[in-house]
């Protein structure tokens, strides 16, 4: 049997919203350590890796390792029925071909239960090497979302150039071109508003902005986003999921012809 309970069910709903545009169905790997998921988008350009550690759940029980094929599209629809402050329990009974989502209101006056049929999915797993990135940019996730949305108006690709002083996002297309430059914050009241850059080497990389915009669907999970970059290496775009884990998106760069 598998059972995991989250006092703040909305966190799980945000995780699903963050994934479902990039991948519509995926296999969840459940073990004693927690829940993990790895999936590529249908074009094999981007990869997402999710970790939710067992100690982040209010209660967690996993008697044996399980691979659960789940439609994220359907799960998202079911989670929309959850109240904002509801507690969420995810359960898979032994020998069952369904996942049960139970939602309980904070005053314990309302209790809803939904079942979703599990799917048999082919999953391709990729080994992600440990990388010492040349540059890590930390910035407010709302700012990153806004920049990606704005860059998409100008072109299909965005070039991210990072130096020790700042980071520049630039795009050009048929309508024209533009760029936004953010300087490293020197003095901020709130850490979540800061832009910080750890740099060993300056980098300039170009990415499909459509994918960056899909990654930004996970921005409500975290005030800050980490962008880790090295030349000729996929971008790693990371949103923390509270203290319990993270969503990491990897995006293959565009290469000059």
């Amino acid at each position: 049997m598998f059972e995991a309970r989250l006092a703040q069910g909305s966190i799980f709903a945000k995780v699903i919203e963050g994934l479902r545009e990039l991948v519509t169905e995926a296999t969840w790997e459940c073990s004693g350590n927690g829940i993990t998921l790895q999936a590529m988008d249908s074009s094999h350009v981007a990869l997402v890796s999710l970790v939710l550690r067992s100690d982040g759940f209010e209660t967690y029980r996993c008697d044996r390792n399980m691979s659960l094929g789940i439609s994220l599209t359907s799960m998202s629809k079911v989670l929309k029925m959850m109240g904002k402050d509801d507690t969420l329990t995810i359960r898979v009974n032994d020998d069952s071909d369904a996942i049960v989502l139970s939602m309980e209101s904070q005053n314990q006056e309302e209790f809803a239960e939904y079942e979703l049929r599990l799917m048999d999915l082919d999953s391709e797993h990729l080994g992600i090497p440990d990388t010492d990135y040349s540059c890590v940019v930390k910035m407010p996730s709302t700012k990153f979302s806004r920049i990606c949305r704005d860059m998409a108006i100008l072109g299909d690709s965005v070039t991210i150039c990072s130096t020790k002083d700042g980071v520049k996002f630039g795009a050009k297309g048929d309508v024209g071109q533009g760029s936004i430059r953010l300087n490293q914050s020197t003095n901020v009241d709130k850490e979540e508003d800061a832009v910080s850059i750890e740099l060993r080497e300056a980098v300039a990389l170009t990415f499909a902005v459509r994918y960056l915009n899909m990654f930004c669907k996970a921005a409500p999970l975290s005030n800050q986003v980490n962008l880790s970059m090295s030349e000729d290496t996929p971008l790693m775009c990371e949103f923390k999921v509270g203290d319990m884990g993270h969503i990491r998106f990897y995006l293959a760069p565009k290469i000059e012809d």
Binding site: M40, H44, L126, G127, S157, A252, K254, I255
Partner: peptide, 14 residues
């Protein structure tokens, strides 16, 4: 002009 590379080019299948 840019060519979009695939993610599997950087990460190995296992």
């Amino acid at each position: 002009y840019y060519f979009q590379s695939e993610i599997a080019y950087y990460f190995l299948y296992y």
